[in-house]
Design a protein around this nucleic acid. Sequence first.
DNA 1: GACCAGGCACATC
DNA 2: GATGTGCATGGT
Length: 229
Amino acid sequence: MGQRGHVKPPVRAVYRALHRHFGPQRWWPARTRFEMMVGAILTQNTAWTNVERAIAELRRRRVLTPRALHDVPPATLAGWIRPAGTPTVKARRLRAFTTWVMEAHGGSLARALRAPAAELRRALLSIHGIGPETADCMVLYAARRPVFVVDAYTRRFLHRHGWLAGAPSYDDVAALFTRALPADAALYNEYHALIVALGKSYCRATPRCGECPLGRWGRVEEGTRARHE
DNA sequence: GACCAGGCACATC
DNA sequence: GATGTGCATGGT
């Protein structure tokens, strides 16, 4: 909740502005659905450039399949994904994820992703190390179902423009978008990717509002910091 | 050298 | 239920 007294975001107009400015993003940047899901775990609280190095190493080691990755001892895996940060934590999380694919779905990711979206989301959330954002990224970008992903960038730009008051729940923030948009996975895909493009370029921890494509809706307050959002 | 990055689990109150 | 903290690397 916490939504009383704040202005709702112009969801469709913001999308048009971002799409006009940045163009199509064609996410997720991965070669396979399994690689996408591995990347979703690796990018937790981590810059994507560091994730790319870890993914490249996994590809070089030829372990970007559920079975191959599952066969790598966690300590070895941690060494390979070092550049992505918190390697012991993420090695454990990757292991929990591949264990689910192996044991609940016989190693078939395609089978795992066939479940209804809500059921898939629940299953993913039950895996150690997969929270709401990671689960929704997987459901949207790997299973291609229309769930809206809420991440730090989403909350930041909403807050900066006065479209988010208090500390609304994850589901409340997602509802701001899903209520205003058709349930279209391709649209949600593009929208989230555009929000990240915005976050990486203008709406950063140290904002650069000069040429921000959302400038017509006002500027970020000077000195606004991420931890206050 | 401080701050940040496409979170999450866990402890504590 | 809300809040604080550890995880850890590489870029700015």
